Amino acid sequence: MDKQFSHIDHRGSANMVDVTEKHISQRLAQAEAFIYMSAETLTMIEQGNHHKGDVFAVARIAGIQAAKKTPELIPLCHPLMLTKIAVDFELQPQLGRVRITSLCKLAGQTGVEMEALTAASVAALTLFDMCKAVDPTMTISGLRVLEKQGGKTGHWQHPEGA
């Protein structure tokens, strides 16, 4: 299969893709990331004893803001009118981590995968920032798109599942 890089023009220069002729469709993307931390830090968060307060509330707002600012951070992304952004957290103490999931939706001419990825990654970075004083050994990993819907390619899910 011969796939062309759509962000490169005929001269090899960076180029924002022209989506003018694309049909508007309902688009959705979900992404996830993980932040690994000590059992003590997980317990502190779970019990609401973190000295910085509700770290999930702050990280959720950061992730939502980040999704909206994606085209300011990633040069060739289109500014989008997102209609839904959600960022959620799942404590997984048995695995020593927090699972961060994001969802972005809109009716538009281009996908929202980058916005979902940006939301999940900035939420993870915010958790790191808020917890680094008590647990500097935290690790962020596993950033990936779980699912996308809409557009020419239709529905896609990560082959390893959610």
Rank of each mutant, 00 (worst) to 15 (best):
D2W: 11
D2K: 09
S13W: 10
S13T: 11
N15F: 01
E21C: 02
K22I: 04
S25Y: 00
A29K: 03
A31I: 06
E32L: 03
A33K: 12
Y36E: 14
Y36W: 11
S38P: 04
S38L: 13
E40D: 12
L42Q: 08
T43E: 12
Q47C: 06
Q47N: 11
N49H: 09
K52F: 10
K52D: 09
V55P: 00
F56Q: 01
R60T: 04
R60M: 05
I61P: 03
A62G: 05
A62S: 06
A62C: 06
G63I: 00
K69R: 14
T70L: 11
P79T: 15
P79L: 15
M81G: 00
L82Q: 11
T83N: 12
T83F: 08
T83K: 14
F89K: 06
E90P: 07
P93K: 12
L95W: 09
G96T: 15
V98Y: 11
R99C: 12
I100Q: 08
T101R: 03
L103A: 03
C104K: 00
K105V: 06
G108I: 05
G108L: 03
V112K: 00
M114T: 04
A116D: 02
T118H: 01
T118G: 00
A120D: 05
S121I: 03
A123I: 11
A124F: 07
A124R: 07
F128W: 13
F128Y: 12
M130F: 03
V134R: 07
M138K: 08
I140D: 06
R144K: 10
K148F: 13
G150E: 14
W156I: 11
A162R: 13
